[in-house]
């Protein structure tokens, strides 16, 4: 029974990496599939060396194989959104939202109007920058990239745009704030809450990947 060597496997891995299969979780599966098929062919009478069998296999199957690589984001989106809803509507999620809302409400009562406005203007951005920084430096590993973790970046960008839209152009106009501070607190609490939920999802995925892919060297 012929088996591929470590070097052969590394060759397939590097080839796929150079073919833009950059995510470790997707590539692991492709490497195993290609290696299994090559071993099958070699054990079914193909006496040629690994390189020739691999080359022929890739000529025939590369397009179909890479089609699978391009579809990862649909499932990643589904996983992220599902997890966000699950976290948001859990007991813990509801407690977090109420805590954020009551804290902002408390600040509204004890602080002067101008200081409160300054805090409301700055707080979501500070939290956003803090979380985005944590995500960038803790979560993304240049050596091993995982599809769902990288996809979370899109959601950070989306929330960043919403923050920009609401707080720069619409909500923080003083006239609106003076008349509708409760509405402002609800919107601010919701944005902070979404950021917290996104971070929870990020840490959940990170833990899952670390656990499942602990064998990745």
């Amino acid at each position: 029974m012929r088996k591929l060597s470590k070097e052969d496997i590394q060759f397939i891995d590097t080839y796929l990496k150079n073919s833009e299969v950059v995510f470790t979780d997707i590539r692991i599966e492709m490497v195993d599939h290609v290696a299994s098929e090559i071993e099958f062919l070699m054990n079914s009478g193909d006496a040629r060396g690994f390189y020739y069998v691999f080359k022929d296999y890739m000529v025939k199957n590369k397009a179909n194989l890479l089609k699978h690589n391009r579809q990862y984001y649909k499932n990643s989106d589904k996983k992220i959104i599902k997890s966000m809803f699950k976290n948001a509507f859990s007991v813990k999620g509801i407690v977090i939202f109420i805590t954020v809302f009551l804290s902002l409400n408390f600040l509204n009562k004890v602080l002067s109007q101008s200081l409160f406005i300054q805090i409301m203007r700055a707080l979501p951005f500070i939290i956003f920058l803090l979380f985005a920084g944590m995500y960038r430096f803790i979560g993304r590993n240049k050596k091993e990239r995982f599809s769902s973790i990288e996809r979370i970046a899109i959601y950070f960008m989306l929330i960043g745009q919403i923050l920009n839209l609401y707080f720069q152009r619409a909500i923080l106009r003083k006239t609106v704030i003076l008349e509708q501070s409760v509405q402002l607190i609800i919107i601010t609490s919701s944005l902070i809450f979404v950021l917290i939920v996104l971070m929870q999802v990020f840490f959940k995925f990170k833990r899952e990947y670390q656990l499942k892919y602990k064998n990745v060297s």
Partner: peptide, 19 residues
Amino acid sequence: EADGLLDVEVARVDNRLRK
């Protein structure tokens, strides 16, 4: 897997990782 119908386990088999 995304729908929660399957669970994944990664193991090292024959010089490579297998899902």
